[in-house]
Structure formats: structure tokens, C-alpha cells
Design a protein around this nucleic acid. Sequence first.
DNA 1: CAATATTCTGGAAACGATTCCAGACTGGCC
DNA 2: GGCCAGTCTGGAATCGTTTCCAGAATATTG
Lengths: 328, 328
Amino acid sequence: MAATIKDVARLAGVSQSSVCRALARPDQVRPDTRERVERAARDLGYYPNRAARGLITGRTANIGVVLPDLANPFFPSVVKAIQTQARRFDYAVFLSDTDEDPAIEVPLIRALAKQVDGFLLCSPRSGEEELRAFAGQIPIVVLNRRITPFPSVTADSADGMRQAIGHLHALGHRRVAYVAGPRASWSNRDRLRGLRSATGAYDMELIEAGNVAPTVDGGAAVADTVAASPATAVIAYNDLVALGLLNRFRARGIAVPGRISVVGFDDILLAGLVSPALTTVAIAKEQIGRTGVELLLDLLADRDPVNRRTPTQLIVRDSTGPLTDQIR
Amino acid sequence: MAATIKDVARLAGVSQSSVCRALARPDQVRPDTRERVERAARDLGYYPNRAARGLITGRTANIGVVLPDLANPFFPSVVKAIQTQARRFDYAVFLSDTDEDPAIEVPLIRALAKQVDGFLLCSPRSGEEELRAFAGQIPIVVLNRRITPFPSVTADSADGMRQAIGHLHALGHRRVAYVAGPRASWSNRDRLRGLRSATGAYDMELIEAGNVAPTVDGGAAVADTVAASPATAVIAYNDLVALGLLNRFRARGIAVPGRISVVGFDDILLAGLVSPALTTVAIAKEQIGRTGVELLLDLLADRDPVNRRTPTQLIVRDSTGPLTDQIR
DNA sequence: CAATATTCTGGAAACGATTCCAGACTGGCC
DNA sequence: GGCCAGTCTGGAATCGTTTCCAGAATATTG
């Protein structure tokens, strides 16, 4: 159906090899053959079959992206940045959403492996050992998680937490709750670690609330527990959870930030739009995606990529403030 | 590096053809060869190269998805549904975000064409003629737009608009504004068409406000114009625009729904989380994605797919109500 | 047990591109 | 004009699969 290199060769009256050269390295053919080939290609609407090319060159010009849940607004932002950067280098993107199911990550990677030059794994949920089995086999860059020996891009959660805690401390808070995300999530552990260190530094009490799904419902589910705790401020695993908290608090008539302050993490689009607008720790989502592509290309070019850490920044909005309802 | 069918053949002591058969049609080989092949494949960690297979079978088991902007929360929902349904039939997904740039759509489709069995074009922005050129060449299903001769899945905007207008009418509104989305957007024209028919049926006045980008900023930009109009209710092209309106209205101290009611379209996750929670016309996003995949598979199997129209449903929340600030 | 029907198997071609190699041109120079 | 160097070109092999075809092995039958 679609034109192949053979058709072009026939129409241009040259051999396949010449067509290939004329299109790939125009300076290696005579101007007139080049012109005839170009015209033939244009006339036939010829586009090379990248899969066939990949077979022989060993380079597919595709990047595989695997992530746990596209419904979490954090990921589309990252993917978009990946896309943009990938296109800049003429790479296309294979996308796979695992639906937070660690069990399908590895088979998925296996199945796609031959169709891509390498993978960007966003917040993979699989065990370290399983993933490590790919080391040396398939070029992999990990985003939002650190797994040796893969190069990775992670956010500086510790600094973000420090900023958040500094802010809350300045507002007079001394007891802060943390609503933890999925236990399998490295980000969750990383954030918690950063938070512990920050509360330690400021000599504040940290109250940990159960692991919840990283969704609005997850946040809503734990809101009552948080409200019943002595915490006067709460930091959520991510913005979705924070929004769930806000929602439930409003439903319960619990004033934010009057009775309790709420801090999110990620700075998704919604964060600034709800009311009270959510104070949150912004992650450089675009930078993570872009840098991920850069590292992967480094890896593919046999340059040795180094782990990168992207900055975080506390965005103070309206969901945090000094206590006004002094109920305890 | 990675194991090929040849390696498996050597290890199992059979020919390539037998390996292929043993794995693809196990009932056509003797049980013992099948077993040896399976073991060899397992031991070597053999996974077939889908690209190579596609070359000969003409079937890549990939679907290409092209959409204008992943940052619009509407699309991730659709993509997620596409993913899920595609995986069910063992298809993988190629994703491309065009950044609302119609100029790159067609080249993108061309470049990817050989790597996928067909495309799902979500809200394509290109001209009809350009896209029609693919008819008969590349299997294409269009989502959120109707372009003959491609099968398409669209939302029943007219019915959604009827519901919205019915709701506003019942609340006492008689003058309603529409904030239009991108001029190039078929959805926008479709929604406007539905709206006109609905306002006509209810004998209401329709005030059309300029075309804006389908984003929060787009909505914010036109809010003052809307407020200055005689409209007592406004329907936005989509939820993002509606949220922009809400935001700006709040900043201006314009009561919603007291002074003006706001209705969105799409029912993205945010809609229910802002306050006032947004009344909006919900679109069956998952169904659109799922159905799109079904139609594409029909097309690929030479079954004749028919256009589908998915239902819409007005979700009444808090951004609509009877007028209370009777300023005019 | 021979003849036939049936099931399995291996060899080779094919898919669409790229690349190596050798041979055919071209030009420059004497 | 003849020779050499350099530039272009075509043929053939190759990537990893699948599939067709013919032949080998096995099973069935009288």
C-alpha cells in the first residue's frame, strides 16, 4: 500500500542503496540523482518505515514511558515535557499506564523493550530487585525514585519539606501531621524522610497518619483521623490527597486555615484553583521530564549520566495561616 | 544482546520455524518440541521483537494516539481509557501531543504511520481536507470530531446543552452567555450549535463571547467581558475556561451563583473540587476512549464501524442557582 | 508389512530499510 | 589520450520475524 524504498528506487531509476543515501546523507550522491530521488520520494509520499530501519540500525528512535496512573495530574505534566524534549531529538514516545499495578510493570517493559531504545520509568512501583534485573540489558532512566544503578531524576523533597515546615513554624504551628501515600512509593518514603528531618530541626512534633491511595478519595478518607489528632497543620503526600482533605474539612465545617492548615505537594494545576487555594510544595515537573530525556539520551550515547535532583519550591497560598480557632 | 529466535532455536535444537510455531500455534507442533522450545525461550528470557514481526505480518499491534494538549485534564482521562482497552487486546500505545499546533499533526501521522496499525485522533485541529487525504491510506478513528469518511466518536453536546439550558431556565435565567473555545475546534462549533438550538427552544437570549484558548487563562481573560454583559448565566466551552471565569469572578467579588451562574463542560476532576463546585455537563470520557479503540479494531478487522455518539449528563453542583443579587 | 494419509519439521523467501564492498564512472593531470 | 585518484553507484548481506513449501517422520489402514 504505502510506498517503500523500492518504489522510490524504481521511479527514480536508481538502486535502493542510492535512495537510502540520497535521503540520509545527501552529500554523498550526485546532485542530479539526489534531486530525482527527492522528487520521486515526494511524488510517492514516501516516508521511511522506522521499524524496518530500527531492525538494522538497532536504533528505533522511540522512548518508552511507563507510569502508574495518568489520572494523577502530576504525570501528564511530566509526560508532556518528555514529549516535547523527545520530539526535539526526533524521538517518539510509547506510553504505558500500569494502573498502579506493580505486577504488570516488568512484563510491560519486556514486551516493549525491542520497540524502544530505552525507558523512562516514572515512579515505578516494582521491587528494586526486579528492576535491577534490567541493568545492563535495557537502558533505563528512573524518575521520582532512586534505584542503583540506574540514572535518576528526583525532586529535592527534603528541601521542600524544610521550606514547608519553616513556613508552618513561622506561623506558630508546633504539631504537624503527615498523610502518607502508597507504601510502595519511593517518593512517599523520601518525603517522609525529609519531613522527619525538618520537624527534627525545628523541634516540632510529627504525627503520621496512615498510608492512603494518592487520590482525592484517599485524602478524604483520612481527614477525620487528622482532624481528631492534636495536629494544627497537615502535610499531605501530594496535592490530590490534600484536596481530599480540604474537601472533607469543608464538609465537616472545619476551618482551613483557621482550625488547621493544609500543605500539599506537587503543585498540580488544581492546587491554585480551589478555595482556599492550596499552599503546596511545587515540583519542577517539566524539568523532571526534560532532564529524564536528556539522561536517557546520554545513556544511549554512552555518555555517563549522573543522577539529577530538581529543586522544589514552597508556594504559599491560602490554605496555611496562623491558628485562629484556638480549640486546644 | 537480547535473545533472538535464533538463539532459542539453537538452544532447543530445532529450526527457527519450529520455534515460531511452537510459540504462536502450539497445537501444530509435537508436545515434546513445544516443551523444549518453551523452556529454551524461558531460559533465555526470549521476547519476540514486535517490530520485526510487524514487518512481515503487516500488523504492529500498536495504536497511535494524537491529541492537542495533554495538559488539559480531559485528555489524560481519555488516554487512560484507550490504554486500558488497548491492552486488553494486546495493543500498545504511541502517544503524541501536538501542543495545539495543527501544523505538526499531519507530518506526525505520516512519520508514525508505519509503526502503528491505526490512529486515534483526539480533537484534531487540522483542516478537513488535509486529514481526508489519509482516507483509505491509514486506518483512522476520530474522537471528538466528525470528519467523513472516518468513523468517529463524539459526545452528544446538543443534549448536554439542552440539559444545561433547561436547568438554567428553570432557575429563572433568560440571558445566557457562551464563552467560545478555539475557532479551529470542532467541539466548540458543535457545542455552540447545540447551545443555539437549546436557547432557541427555550426562547432565551444567547450572548456569544469571543474565542479563547481552552485554558484557565483563557477563561480568566474573558471574565470581565462576560460580567459586563447582560447575561445572568454563562456556559463555558469547557471546564478549564469555566474555572478561569470562577477565579476571576471571585477576584472581582462577583458572586457565583448569586450574581451570575457558571456552567462548565467535560466534568474534569477539578470541577467537583473547587468552590463553588462547578455545575458542568459531564462527558463520558472513558467511554469515548474505549469506544474509539473498539471502532479502530473494527476498522482493522474490516468490519465496518459506525459513528458513535456518547451520552452527556448535566451534573448540578453549586455554581448555578437562582439570581439573588438583582442588579438589573 | 506395505501403502497411504497425516502430522511435523526445516529451508528459504519475504518484509523494508541500511551498509559494506567492489566495480563503474568522473575529473584532473601529464 | 592514458592513467590515477577520487567520487558515485549497484548488488548483496543483514536485522528478527513469519510463512510457504516440500520433504521427513509418524500414524493409519487394509
